[in-house]
């Protein structure tokens, strides 16, 4: 029996010199699912993320990847077992081109006993590998910049290169660390659309850590909320966002998450809908007497516009 959970985390505890950073955190991500993780600053999101990836070792609890206990595995072992990631502040290999990034990942995946193969000249990427990379580049819309040194890419493109690099490892789950950070609205929209399309094609799962509530609301179907190292809520995204606990801890008193629900149900169309979201925000801003403090998200709508979503959790 294969568990449907691609990632199953149970009872993670982590303390730093006496301060409890994570306390008994459990979460699961099913195959092909999109799950969000939010929480106030310092809630332990990054710590949890690092425990999942193997950068930190939890004091207690275990991490299972595809039913295999990987709690003791190093970062690269987990990566080989199908855990891909992107970085909040992009981490690219300097002095290389875009295609070279993907080729490195592809070579690493395909090669063992590299040393002797290299000496015999069989370590160079072959035509099949190059075309596999190019296929991913096309999918990401990076085909035209394949030969460009990564130093001259925009931040948005850099993030896509990270995604592409992770895709070459054929991940079962992709951990995205604040992918919207530093991107503007239209870039975030484009990234979400591209990611959504590739994900539905390839069927890997996504765990998204974000502050951009709008992106979380639209992109994910399920949500975990972390505060003071503990899970304070989880469940379907819309309902969770509307729960009072989440509002108090994270969104702020008058936050409105209405409208997002519709979008979330229909990910592939996210692009256009999100564009409209921006329009709404700007309209809202033009209206001087505003009371809500939510960011652009549905700012024009009165708080709690959708009855029935609040307080269900």
């Amino acid at each position: 029996m294969i568990s449907p959970d691609v990632l199953a985390v149970s009872g993670i505890k982590k303390t730093f010199s006496g301060i409890v950073a994570l306390d008994d955190v459990s979460l699961t991500v099913e195959t092909g699912e999109r799950v969000g993780l939010i929480g106030p600053n310092g809630a332990g999101k990054t710590t949890l993320f690092n425990c999942l990836l193997g950068i930190l070792r939890p004091d207690a609890g275990q991490v299972e990847l595809n039913g295999v206990d990987v709690t003791g595995h190093r970062v690269h072992k987990r990566a080989q077992a199908g855990m891909g990631r992107t970085f909040q502040r992009i981490e690219l290999f300097s002095d290389t081109t875009v295609r070279e990034h993907l080729l490195i990942a592809e070579r690493v995946r395909n090669n063992s006993g590299a040393f002797w193969k290299d000496l015999l000249g069989r370590g160079r990427p072959n035509a099949a590998e190059i075309s596999a990379c190019d296929a991913v580049l096309e999918m990401l819309g990076l085909g035209e910049v394949a030969e460009v040194p990564i130093e001259s890419l925009s931040l948005g493109q850099g993030r896509l290169v990270e995604v592409g690099r992770a895709l070459m490892t054929d991940p079962q789950i992709l951990l995205l660390d604040e992918p919207s950070s530093g991107l503007d609205r239209s870039e975030t929209n484009a990234l979400a659309a591209t990611l959504g399309a590739i994900q539905s094609e390839r069927g890997f799962a996504i765990l998204l850590v974000e502050h951009d509530v709008e992106l979380v609301a639209e992109f994910t179907t399920r949500l975990y909320v972390l505060d003071f190292g503990q899970l304070i809520a989880h469940g379907p995204t819309t309902e969770t966002l509307a729960s009072p606990a989440v509002r108090n801890a994270y969104l702020g008193a008058g936050a409105a998450v209405a409208g997002a629900a519709d979008d979330a149900a229909d990910p592939p169309k996210a692009d256009t809908k999100r564009g409209l979201g921006v329009a709404g925000a700007a309209d809202g801003a033009a209206d001087p007497p505003r009371t809500d403090t939510g960011r652009e998200l549905g700012a024009g709508d009165p708080p709690g516009a959708e009855p029935g979503t609040g307080g269900e959790l």
């Binding site: 929480g39 106030p40 600053n41 909040q88 604040e178 950070s181 530093g182 502050h211 509530v213 801890a249 994270y250 969104l251 702020g252 936050a255 403090t293 939510g294 960011r295």
Partner: peptide, 16 residues
């Protein structure tokens, strides 16, 4: 420059 980047909405409110 980019005040709200990486901050929870509730903190952004406070900053503003």
């Amino acid at each position: 420059d980019e005040l709200s980047l990486g901050l929870a909405p509730i903190v952004v409110d406070e900053v503003y």
